[in-house]
Structure formats: structure tokens, C-alpha cells
Amino acid sequence: PPQTPVRAAMNTIQQLMIILNSASDIPSDNLLFYFNNCTVNPHESIVKRVENMGIIFKNKFAEAVGQGCAEIGSQRYKIGVRLYYRVMESLLKSEEKRLSVHNFSKLLNNDVFHISLLACALELVMATYASRNASQNVNVETDLSFPWIINILDLKAFELYMIVESFIKAEPSLTREMIKHLECCEHKIMESLAWQSNSPLFELIKQSKDREGQADEPEPANY
């Protein structure tokens, strides 16, 4: 039978639970294998970052929704972290296959990579639960919809944009609704958020122009 919005939202949550049922709150053995293969082992910094981001997330969630919902925020964060570790492992496996590389020291010690991956996982969890509440007309959440998550984690919109496609590729079990939501976030970023004055996008554009040697040509008037 055709899905009602409630059914669709519930299916998405169920799917998220199925995906994460077997996922772990801490790095898996496979992940530890990759960590140990790094020139600089990132294990400690990754776990510490998850802890620190957790404190920020829970405080901001409680601030936004109410102290009575602090435990809900805690649960959301926990689910997000499971998805973060699961997708990280899948990303590394595919990079290992693609590049025939086993030492991911630079990537795994890159702060922005981890925060954008965690933010993407948390955004998906937040959207999944928010859509359920919206379809049941339950107004529990104040506006925690995107870009709330990148604002509280102090992440640039374009930095999140860089991870979305790889995230979707790395997690084949995402539902249509989840993928649609991430695509919607991408559109919001490219339509406006990525063009804010402090966006790293401008530097990337400048670098690519420099690389193409266009810098020394006079810019055509229509620029």
C-alpha cells in the first residue's frame, strides 16, 4: 500500500536502527587495524574528539529543546557516532581498494574530515527523527534542522558538502528519504551557505585559477 508520511518516517527510523544495530559505539577491529597502520596513530585523538563533540552536541541540544530532553540528545548523539564509525570503516575500505594504500595517516589525522563525517552522520539521525515528529505533528523539536548541526560543531558548510557524496557511496543501506535529505542539504549549501564570506570555497576557486595560470590574465569584464 502507498506509504503515508508517518509510515515513511517510521520505515526510515527502522532502517537506521537495522543499520546501526550491529554497529559499535567505539572503533571496530577493522578501524583499529587502519589506525595502527598510520604513521601517526589517530586513535586517541579520534576518541577524544568524539567525546568533546558529544559534550557540545548534548549541551546545544538541551539548550535548544529543553533540559528535560538532554537524555534524548544523548541518545541521538550515540546513534550518530555509531553511524560515523561505520561509514568511516566503509570509506577506508573503498579508499584502500581504489588507491591500494594502507596508510591513511594524513586523512585520519585531518580534523575537518572527522568533524564533517560526524556532522553528516548526526544530520542524518536528526533529520530521521525530526521527520517522524513532524509527520505526527509532535512539536518537540525547535528548529534543529540543517544547518543547525554545522553551526554548533563550528563546521563550514562547504566542508560538509565535501563528504556527502562519499558518505552516500560508502553506506549503501541508506533509504531514499535519507539520500534525498542529504541531497537537499547539498543544494542548500551550494545555493547559499557555501558562498558566505568565510567559506573555504573561495580559496579553492582561487587555487584552481592559479593552477590554471589564469591569475595573470586580465579578468574579462563580464566577471
Binding site: N110, E165, I179
Partner: peptide, 21 residues
């Protein structure tokens, strides 16, 4: 994922995107 428009080119992955190749 059939609805999603993948745009990364061959040889572009997370390592290149985060400048860690």
C-alpha cells in the same frame, strides 16, 4: 541511490577531496 546525482570524477575520492592523497 539511483536518484542521487553522483558528480565525483574518476580518481576523485575522499583522500583527494580532503587533500590527503
Amino acid at each position: 541511490t539511483q536518484d542521487y546525482h553522483f558528480g565525483l570524477e574518476e580518481g576523485e575520492g575522499i583522500s583527494e577531496l580532503f587533500d590527503c592523497d
